[in-house]
């Protein structure tokens, strides 16, 4: 029996507000019937989210505030490594040197681990292929990408989100 997660009022109201906003944005129609249906489906979604243990995850306000800086770093990283991967794919000799790296993380929360793993996958040239407790296996297209990962920049940036 999975734990349902305790209900915190603020996250619940926030989720329902976001859902209502996207419903109205997406439909753009304001007939009473559609609005009632929208309200109903928003409440249903919130209930399903609770069932999935959504409210067990904690997302402190400071994380949300630091997210833009994190995304900016990630964007720079994505651009850099995309150009590198594009160069490799287009060069006639196909200079790949696949390398497996095992990383460890200090993130204690599930969300922190997911954010770290996804950030690594999101930048081309490195893909998280396995995650267990606090070790990640990362497949890298080149040795250089693997060496860059060993500098732990991804871990540092994720830690700055202040999730744990």
């Amino acid at each position: 029996m999975p734990r349902r997660g305790t209900l915190k009022l603020l996250p619940l109201l926030g989720l329902i507000l976001i859902l209502l906003l996207s419903w109205t944005l997406w439909s753009g129609m304001f007939k009473p019937l559609l609005l009632w249906l929208g309200l109903f489906s928003c409440l249903l979604s919130a209930w399903l989210a609770r069932r999935m243990g959504f409210f067990r995850l904690q997302l402190p306000l400071r994380t949300l505030l630091r997210l833009p800086a994190f995304w900016l770093w990630l964007l720079r990283e994505v651009i850099k490594s995309s150009l590198e991967v594009a160069r490799i794919v287009l060069s006639p000799s196909l200079p790949v040197s696949p390398t497996l790296v095992t990383l460890t993380t200090d993130e204690s929360t599930e969300s922190g681990k997911v954010i770290l793993g996804n950030a690594i996958t999101l930048s081309p040239g490195t893909v998280t292929i396995d995650m267990h407790e606090d070790t990640l296996q990362v497949h890298c297209l080149t040795r250089e990408a693997a060496q860059a990962l060993q500098e732990q920049e991804a871990q540092r940036q994720t830690a700055r989100l202040g999730l744990g």
Binding site: I79, V89, T126, V127, H139
Partner: peptide
């Protein structure tokens, strides 16, 4: 199409998916 092995092809897919 060009990359030699399954795990390397993952990187090509992630190139189209993000950038």
């Amino acid at each position: 199409l060009r990359l030699p092995e399954f795990y390397t092809r993952l990187h090509a897919a992630s190139l189209t998916e993000t950038m």
